[in-house]
């Protein structure tokens, strides 16, 4: 039975809602049952946020239990490490190398880890890291980093190029469609580079 358990994580305000909605539309177009769980309110104010996307024949819980995710997409490096344990053995982590300092680091109470990549290696995962913001800027708008990450994760998520294009067109405001399609393609190139 086909099932996809995905987390999209990042820092409040980075645009994870759009990414999860694109995924929802994709799974729906494939005729799957789908649930998304989002974060609104207090946690949005620059805090760590997680959106769950689950698809399959029949989905009950809208959230994914720790150690069971197939894929984690992270908008930020520290957040990638924070959620690495939610992946199953051999699961895939796709993350942007962008770093955003949390308040304890800004105030000097804690240090931003400088060994994220090696600490991730301690988990049994497939990891793909690239600078999604630069890719999005190359595509024409830094705010499309979310869709660049989806492009990089798309070989794991599945879906034909036509299906992806159709859901991006249907979800993104018309004037941003081209930028997002380019960002998606650049992300996909990163995945092909491996």
């Amino acid at each position: 039975m086909m099932k996809k358990d995905i987390l999209i994580v990042g820092v409040g305000g980075q645009g994870s809602l759009l990414a999860s909605r694109i995924l929802g539309a994709l799974f729906l177009s494939q005729g799957l049952d789908c649930k998304l769980s989002e974060v609104h309110g207090m946690s949005q104010r620059g805090g760590s946020v997680v959106t769950y996307v689950r698809a399959g024949e029949n989905v009950s819980s809208p959230m994914v239990s720790d150690g069971e995710a197939d894929l984690v997409i992270s908008f930020e490096a520290l957040e990638a490490l924070r959620y690495a344990h939610t992946l199953k053995k051999g699961g895939t982590l796709v993350y942007s190398t962008q770093e955003i300092m949390p308040m304890p680091v800004i105030t000097g109470a804690a240090a931003y880890p400088d060994d994220i990549a090696s600490r991730l290696a301690a988990f049994d995962l497939k990891v793909l890291a690239f600078d999604a913001e630069s890719a999005a800027e190359k595509a024409g708008n830094g705010r499309a980093a979310n869709v660049a990450l989806l492009g990089a994760a798309s070989p794991i998520i599945g879906g034909t190029p036509e299906e992806w294009e159709a859901v991006i067109r249907a979800t993104v405001p018309p004037k941003f469609v081209d930028v997002n399609l380019r960002a998606f393609a650049l992300g996909l190139e990163e995945a092909k580079k491996g």
Binding site: S60, S65, L78, R82, V105, A109
Partner: peptide, 28 residues
């Protein structure tokens, strides 16, 4: 969580590794 329920009722442990110890990111 479903994992909590599985543990309490079926006695099955979650396969999850321990989370990494890293700085928290509270709202600001």
């Amino acid at each position: 969580t479903p994992a909590m329920i599985r543990k309490a009722i079926l006695g099955e442990d979650s396969p999850a590794p321990a989370p990494a110890a890293i700085p928290v990111r509270p709202p600001v």
